[in-house]
Structures are given as C-alpha cells and as structure tokens.
Design a protein around this nucleic acid. Structure first.
Lengths: 150, 150
DNA sequence: CCAAATTAGATGCATTTGCATCTATCGACG
DNA sequence: CGTCGATAGATGCAAATGCATCTAATTTGG
C-alpha cells in the first residue's frame, strides 16, 4: 500500500487549490457582510482600489478587467455606474481610438480611502489572529508566486 | 524613519489578503473559462462537489451555504434549478420541520464526476508548474489554518 | 496600401443575484 | 403549556451579470 493520501501530484494540486478557494470564500463572506461595504459593492470598491494604486492615475478598461472576476460586459456597466455616481472619470485613450482610460475623481478617491481604512481594519481582525507574521509573509509569497506564474 | 514597508501588522495582514485574493481571482478566471464548465456554472458545480464529499449523502441547505459565496436566497434558487435539471433531490429534514435535506441523484453524481475529472486536470495544469510540492503543501496548510481560525 | 482578422468596448436580452420580506417551525422562558 | 424571539427556507422585485452580438479602431499579411 504505497498510495498515501496526497501521493499524486494532481491530487495535491487539487487539494491545494481547494484549500485556497475555501479560505478565500470564508474570509470574503465575512468581509463583504461587514459595514465597510454599505455604500459600495466589493467589486465596485475593488475597481476604485485598483485605480488608486495606479501610478499614472489612468488605467485602461481592459487592464482593469484582469484584476476583477467579472466579464467584460459586466465591468463595462459597473464602470458606467461608477461614472454616473461621480466616482470615476473617463477619457478616450490617446494612443488607441478604441480604448478608454479611467481615473478616480476626487470624490472617488475620498470614498476609496474611507472604505479602505475600514476594510483594512476588518482584514487585519481576521488575518492577524489566524497566522503569525512569518506565516503571513509566506502565504503572501506563495500566492504571489502562484499568480505570477500564470 | 523606522517605518519600513510592511512593518505594521495591519498592513502585513492587508497585503497578505490581497495576494491571496488576487491569486484566487487569477486562477478562477482561467478555470471557469475552460471547457469543464460548459454544462454547469462554477457555483452549481461547487454544490454538486460539496454534496459528493458528504459522508451521509444528505446535507442541509444552510450547511451548504457556508461553503459557497452566495446569499441564502440565491442558493435556494440555485438548488431549485439543480432539482429541475434532475441533478439533486430534496427531502424535508426529519428532525427539523423547517429544514431541507439535499442529495445528489445518480445523474448529478455522474455529472459531478465528469466535470470533476476535467476540473482537476485544469487545476493541476495551473498549480503544479507554479509551486513545488512542498510549497503546495505549505500553501494548503496556511490557507486551512486561516479558514479554521475564523 | 488594402482586405481580413483581431481587439476594445458598448448594448440587447435572458438569467442570476441580493435585499427585503414572508411563512413555518423551533427553542427558550415565564 | 403558551407566548415570543430566533432560525430555515421561499418568494417578489429590482439590480447585477454573462452571453452573444455589434461598432469602430487597430494590426497583420499579401
């Protein structure tokens, strides 16, 4: 009987992914039910957050789409909603007549910061008691490595 | 200036969560666009999968809801759809007149296995090249620990 | 330089989702 | 026991999502 539980590489990969996925579900469920996301859905906040991290301030719609788990059409309409609420501004891309550039408005930046502060506290309250700092660093390293190798 | 990048525990936790979340988004995006999920959405498959892992075969609707990132009402309707397609069967809970028990039908079990085989191959193709077996085990350990401590 | 194929994003439409609420049952407590 | 708050699940309805498709701009290959 040389067939121990996770002997197969395929099985190990599947179990690894399932553990990652379930952890994400469990944490996200708690985060999104908190008071931080009263004013904005998580996906909407995520767009504002990504824009806030963008060095130039402007980001292409299709680049945004890589970060978010949404179809292209859903992102298009999500951005439309954000624009209607005055949180982001659009501009036709200068180098590509098909493209659209996005940036935060002042109001959008304010709201991102406001939600972000609370969001970060919520995250910390969940993650910090669960893992030591070294474990957190290792988890960050492994998930970054996984993402970068796709 | 003793404020290095991730000196703050709060910041470290936030960065850890973001890395985990982005990795999940990146992997999930690739998985769900693959041919494995032609016949069934990921959330629907996930319900079949969870039922297939249940020792007794029967599972309460509200227990299912802990595993899935869906509101109670959405899960209720998702299950309704699965039942209409003949993939799951319902039964009133014997010990609790409010509850509903679910199990896979034979057809549901077949479909879960069929999709599952392909799904596992897809996962392996993404995860195995990215992380060594030891790294995968460590990632599994850390995400399990995170989830269990919530 | 032009036609064909590709890419960015928008839009019509059906499906899915979530919020609020409703019904029914359970459990606690007087 | 009988009432009252809590819990399980279903449902009306508005909002969000995805698929297929459309338009327009770009890139590619002859």
């Amino acid at each position: 009987m040389a067939t121990s539980q996770s002997a197969s590489p395929v099985r190990l990969a599947a179990e690894t992914w399932e553990a990652l996925f379930r952890a994400q579900v469990a944490v996200m469920r708690r985060l999104q039910s908190g008071p931080a996301f009263r004013k904005l859905a998580v996906n909407e906040y995520d767009v504002l957050f990504t824009l806030s991290r963008c060095p130039s301030g402007w980001l292409r719609l299709n680049e945004l789409n890589d970060n978010v788990l949404l179809s292209q059409s859903s992102l298009s309409r999500l951005v439309e909603r954000l624009e209607k609420r005055g949180l982001v501004a659009r501009m036709p891309a200068p180098e590509d007549g098909r493209g659209v550039l996005l940036k935060l408005t002042d109001e959008g930046r304010e709201l991102q910061k406001e939600i972000g502060r609370e969001h970060v506290r919520d995250i910390s309250a969940l993650v910090a008691p669960a893992l030591t700092p070294d474990e957190q660093k290792e988890l960050r390293r492994l998930t970054d490595k996984l993402r970068n190798s796709l």
